[in-house]
Computed example of a mutant assay.
Amino acid sequence: MKVTIDQDRCVASGQCVTAAAEVFDQRDEDGIVVLLAAEPPAELAEDVREAAAVCPVLAIAVEE
C-alpha cells in the first residue's frame, strides 16, 4: 500500500488523524495534513482506507 496526500486540497478537518494517527498528523501552524508513513505496515491498511474515505475533500489517495 502506498499513500499520497494533496496538501493543497486539505481543509484541516483532522479526520485522517482520528482514523490513523500512526500514518497522519497535522501541522501545528494551520492543521494541514502531514504524511508520517507513505508505505504503512499492513496492519494499518484498514485504518488508512478509513482515513481516505472520511476525508471531506478526498485529499488522501491510497494505491494498493
Rank of each mutant, 00 (worst) to 15 (best):
D30E: 12
L36N: 07
D6E: 10
V23I: 12
V11Y: 07
Q26Y: 04
E46D: 14
A51V: 04
A38E: 15
G14I: 03
G31K: 05
V48C: 04
V48D: 00
I5A: 01
A51C: 08
D8V: 06
V62N: 03
V33P: 00
E63L: 12
E29G: 04
I32M: 13
Q26K: 11
R49H: 12
G31N: 05
V57E: 13
Q15S: 07
T4W: 05
V17A: 07
V54L: 12
Q26F: 04
V3E: 02
I5C: 03
I60P: 00
R49S: 07
I32V: 14
F24D: 00
A51R: 02
A38T: 09
C55H: 02
F24Y: 10
A52N: 02
Q15G: 13
E43W: 09
A37L: 14
V57L: 12
E39D: 10
C10Q: 01
V34N: 01
M1V: 09
P40Y: 12
R9W: 08
V54C: 12
V23E: 00
A52F: 06
A51T: 02
K2T: 07
V62G: 02
V33A: 06
A45E: 08
A38Q: 15
R49D: 07
D25G: 14
D25V: 02
D28P: 05
Q15R: 13
K2F: 07
E50W: 06
D6Y: 11
D6Q: 07
A12S: 15
F24Q: 00
R27T: 06
R9Q: 14
A38I: 09
A12L: 10
D8W: 05
E63I: 12
E46H: 06
E29N: 07
I60W: 05
V11I: 15
